[in-house]
Design a protein around this nucleic acid. Structure first.
Lengths: 139, 139
DNA sequence: GTCAGTGCAAACCCTTTGCAGAAAG
DNA sequence: CTTTCTGCAAAGGGTTTGCACTGAC
């Protein structure tokens, strides 16, 4: 069967193409790493991990690729504070716990949280999303 | 009456002392400007405004003072994204609208918004606050 | 007089950019 | 072959820091 393909790169390549991204070697390599599980990583962490093995990817390419993936909707960028920016591979709508002491960001399962009495939006405006980050500290 | 004082600096000085801040000239000057009304300003905007008249305050002092005021609870720091950090003089608990197109941050009145089904916090953690920023775009 | 606060300029961190060489199609 | 991508290193923006001077008390 021609549509069956056991090469994970091929699957990812299709996914990238479907999002309008040319599947280059570097992007496939970064993508394989990112999308192998749900993650919350900084650009720096991605850079380190992606250069663990023989493969070599520059900082510029890591930044460019992450921005591109965000722009095309494959990743979400989560800003905790100016020096804490994470890239989240969980594609579903959800919010986050941020552990202040450890600097770890964690998903809050989608539908647990619920916002009521959302104020009326000012006229001539459209809802563009909500970011909710719940900060947690050691007990 | 000895406790009556029409000098606004004196009132602010007491306020700063009450928060454990030595009321220096620079801090009073920055404080007078900030606390004269509800504001959402970047460090840069504070620097500009505070240097409008004869008074001269360095960048370092503006940054130090803003951090000190945040640490002592007189201001809140609102992070929209890494290059959009605001200092909010509204002391009450509230959330924000962020106008993506204009870069303006605006308060959502305190009690309008309501979060339900807050998930149980992981064990050994304390609630450390929630940040909610609702992004708005032009209709 | 002592300790904290301030200004200046340099240092910093993270991210972006310019440009020449490499890869995609 | 043409266009897009990539690496390198330099530049950029916003914030912090080191140090000598000034001000608070």
């Amino acid at each position: 069967m021609t549509t069956h393909n056991i090469n994970p790169d091929a699957a990812l390549a299709s996914r990238l193409r479907a999002s309008g991204i040319t599947p280059t070697q570097r992007r496939l390599h970064i993508g394989q790493f990112l999308f192998s599980k749900l993650r919350h990583l900084s650009a720096d962490q991605v850079f380190d991990q992606v250069n663990r093995n023989s493969e070599r990817v520059s900082q510029a390419t890591v930044y460019n690729t992450l921005s591109l993936f965000v722009e095309k909707g494959l990743l979400h960028q989560i800003v905790v504070d100016p020096s804490k920016v994470f890239y989240d591979t969980n594609p579903s709508k959800h919010h986050h716990f941020y552990y202040v002491d450890t600097g770890i960001l964690e998903d809050i399962p989608t539908n647990q949280i619920e916002i009521n009495n959302l104020p009326e939006l000012p006229s001539d405006t459209l809802f563009g999303g909500v970011n909710i980050i719940i900060q947690l500290r050691k007990a």
